[in-house]
Design a binder for these strands. Structure first.
Lengths: 99, 99
DNA sequence: TTTTTAACTTTGTATCTCAAAGTGCTTTTT
DNA sequence: AAAAAGCACTTTGAGATACAAAGTTAAAAA
């Protein structure tokens, strides 16, 4: 049976991961530290959420050295964009149904 | 620090509970069985989610007998309406930021 | 009296979430 | 050269969560 909540992705239910995706949707790439500050989470927590999203292939990572310091940047994959869009559309339809 | 995800309620993060609230927001009251079918969940699972929402005082329950059968109806409390609205507004602002 | 329906409650497993602490690598400071 | 600091993890461990399945209760129907 198809319900109103079927278009929701388990991976985006968590508030931190929702925040990560929302941030990555409007920024080509984002640095680890920027996300960490933006969402106000510990580095360990962010790392584990990022790993979960990477595992699902919703985000990708680019590691380099900038100014001789390690730099980790994340970006959304095409798959991630598609999935997140569907998730948001589902949320939107839930919201719209309220008005 | 205040982040974009601060207006989200832990109680509404779960897809089933989000569905329950969305359904209750547009129906004065809903019966246990209706909700169960609408969301396609087991009775035990629904009962525990309802209990969680009741505990938070976001929904109330009215038990009676209709046609000599036990009937359980749920409704949103004022508190629940307010909280859910804030949750949806936060989601909406996240969605809007994407466009 | 047995079965059925409604609405739970209990049980048990698996998963999730998070902070805190520990790690490895590199650069900066002393 | 040694120590400290920064970045980005990884590990650990505790507590919370989610779910199906099975068991329970109470009333009604067969």
């Amino acid at each position: 049976m198809k319900t109103i909540i079927d278009g929701l992705y388990k991976a985006f239910e968590n508030r931190v991961r929702l925040g990560i995706m929302a941030a990555l949707a409007v920024n080509e790439t984002l640095e680890f530290t920027a996300l960490k500050e933006y969402l106000d989470v510990t580095d360990g927590n962010l790392a584990s959420h990022m790993k979960a999203l990477e595992k699902e292939k919703f985000v990708g990572v680019k590691k380099s050295f900038i100014d001789r310091k390690p730099n980790t940047r994340y970006y959304m994959t095409t798959q991630g964009k598609k999935a997140f869009e569907e998730h948001l559309n589902t949320l939107e339809s839930i919201i719209k149904a309220q008005k």
